[in-house]
Write a protein that binds this DNA or RNA. Sequence first.
DNA 1: TTCGTCATGTAATGGGTTACATGATTAC
DNA 2: GTAATCATGTAACCCATTACATGACGAA
Lengths: 207, 207
Amino acid sequence: MAGKKGAGVLELAVLGLLHESPMHGYELRKRLNTLLGMFRAFSYGSLYPCLKQLLTSGLIMEDRPEEPNTALALQSRRSKIVYKLTADGKERLQQLLTEAGPASWEDEGFGVHFAFFSHTRADVRLRILEGRRSRLEERLESVRAALARTRERVDSYTLELQNHGLESVEREVRWLNELIGRERAEQEQQARSSSQTNQDMPRENGR
Amino acid sequence: MAGKKGAGVLELAVLGLLHESPMHGYELRKRLNTLLGMFRAFSYGSLYPCLKQLLTSGLIMEDRPEEPNTALALQSRRSKIVYKLTADGKERLQQLLTEAGPASWEDEGFGVHFAFFSHTRADVRLRILEGRRSRLEERLESVRAALARTRERVDSYTLELQNHGLESVEREVRWLNELIGRERAEQEQQARSSSQTNQDMPRENGR
DNA sequence: TTCGTCATGTAATGGGTTACATGATTAC
DNA sequence: GTAATCATGTAACCCATTACATGACGAA
């Protein structure tokens, strides 16, 4: 158990998708790439090794529905391999979904983490959104500073590029602001209704 | 000529920056990261090996300005190393700036290629912009198709993510449209003025 | 029966990061 | 004189890609 760094983004994505429903690799990859569509695309060369690794570490298992009545005794020669989560896998997924750190708000990971927000605790969601926002704001500030420093020394295409980048990020920040606002409103509403019924927020007992 | 794949994006970026003015590695990296600000950030761990490789392949050379009057006979112990392009390097840069292929319009390369558009031929610029646009439109189409297929089966966060991605890309397409429009207008104007004067005036009048 | 798609995999490679190690210069 | 920053470099590793190889299955 020492070391054994997970496959980063892919691990979460695979576990998350398999949690929604069991699947075989090929389909997994398609769902992956439509899910993340604009952000990333994985190839088989990374997916299958990842599945293999998850298998050997006991987070997923093969799940052959066994519908062999149809007179095919050896139907298993290079057929589909459907994977599903094990108990350990569910636990691992839960763990991944609970940590709100750089991995969850940097460029590589944010999309995937966001995609599974409906399985994520509300407070974690909020911290991830805020983390990403402040990350982007850092970037904005440093680029704006650089832009102010070098004003008039850059050619028009460079300027155009930096402006477009700036505007894109500003746009994402506005998007995050709106999401954060919604999350906060939701939390308040929940807090209100729970204080009404004299209950403190149940802190995610392990089910 | 056999093999010797260049260091991808970095090679172009380094050659391009050094073409504008000689620099040492540390400064190069800063300029690199402000130039590309929103898109990429390189670390020394990739920059210095790249410089080394460019050095050994003769595309850049050390350029010590030699201002040693100040009584420092051994001023060179671990001092700055300023690099500049060689003739080969300039040629290579020109070559890189002339090819309008996937490398120039895929996500990884587009920003860098665009950043040096002022050193790029007008027709190449146009083809790169159009290449990127059609690349993005492909992506839009496939995501929209997927979205239509799975409508109502996805949870709200996934939907939110996909929508945001979609809008981001649509926005970039609009940006590209405008740039392409400008480029075309410029080309037409140049064509017009050159046809106007091509009978009695020497062609090639630079401003 | 052949072609396109579904489906699973591996080996070689690649481009990059992190963490580390160290020296030089500047500001206080 | 010491801390921060400038400046150069390397080794170990990581995540993923490309290209390849193979096999099953349905439709023309």
